[in-house]
Amino acid sequence: MITQPQTTPAVPDPYEERLRVQTARLLAYRDDGPLVMLLRGKVGPGLPSVPSALVALLAIIAMSVTGMLTDGPILLVPVLIMIVLVLPTAARDHLGKLDWLMPPLIRAAEFLTIILIGLAVDAPKWLLYVLIYVIGYHTYDTVYRTRQSIWPPDWVFRAGLGWEIRLLLIGAGAALDVLTWVLAALTIYLGVLFAVESVTSWVRLDKGAALAQAGDDLEASPEEVLEQTTGDAEPA
């Protein structure tokens, strides 16, 4: 009888696996949206990550300090600076020693741009605060999940529009003098999306963990298993 040689599955290299996870985490923390995902493979090697983000952040600060951010189409310029300088960095592998700075730099530039544009057109400050809180919650939820080795689905980042489309909508709304309505719609949409998806995912995870724990308890009665997984015991 001829038998096929048994092949031992390749064991992933620990160092390569650590780099893969590190890259995946940083890309998730960037919170890129559909526009970045569409163009990521079409910008060649991309721009250096941290220097490009720093230049974008400093350019936006300079525009604010010099009083350039007034009413009108000029309010689209900070958004275009972000698109031109930060979007091409998505093509990088994010394995540099300082590439861990990219997500906080992007968040800082995004939040600063939202605040400066909102103040320039006298948008409701509480609405700016709530929008930033919603985006910050999404960022926190993403970080916490990945540290538990739980990865948010890709569709969440697409549906969340990413930093680039959020800023484009805000910049266009300010230029067209409808920023308050854009901020309100964006806040409601993102708040519902991120809250419902986050709560649903964590509840599903908790139920899955409870089912696994109950399944491991071979001596538990069916009523005890039901009570552990649902919190309700079946009446005798």
Rank of each mutant, 00 (worst) to 15 (best):
I132R: 05
D122K: 15
W163V: 11
M102T: 03
E219G: 08
E17I: 01
L169T: 06
P48M: 06
D232G: 12
I106N: 09
L80W: 12
L186D: 07
R18A: 14
P51K: 01
A212S: 08
V65M: 09
T230E: 02
F194E: 07
I2C: 08
G160L: 00
V11I: 09
M82D: 02
L47S: 01
P45I: 08
Q22C: 03
Q6G: 06
T187G: 03
R145V: 09
G215V: 07
H94D: 12
R30V: 11
T200Y: 14
L226G: 08
S149P: 06
L179T: 07
A175I: 06
R145A: 13
E219R: 13
V121F: 05
L76S: 06
M63I: 05
G33P: 01
T113F: 03
L176N: 03
D232V: 15
P153V: 08
A90N: 04
A174D: 07
A174F: 02
Q6H: 10
D71N: 10
L87M: 11
T200M: 15
L128A: 10
A91Y: 00
S201V: 00
A10P: 05
L128S: 10
D177E: 13
D122R: 14
D232C: 13
G191F: 09
P51D: 10
R30K: 12
T142C: 08
V79S: 01
G96P: 03
A220K: 11
A123C: 04
R18Y: 04
A109I: 11
Y133P: 05
Y144T: 11
F157L: 11
R20T: 00
R30F: 10
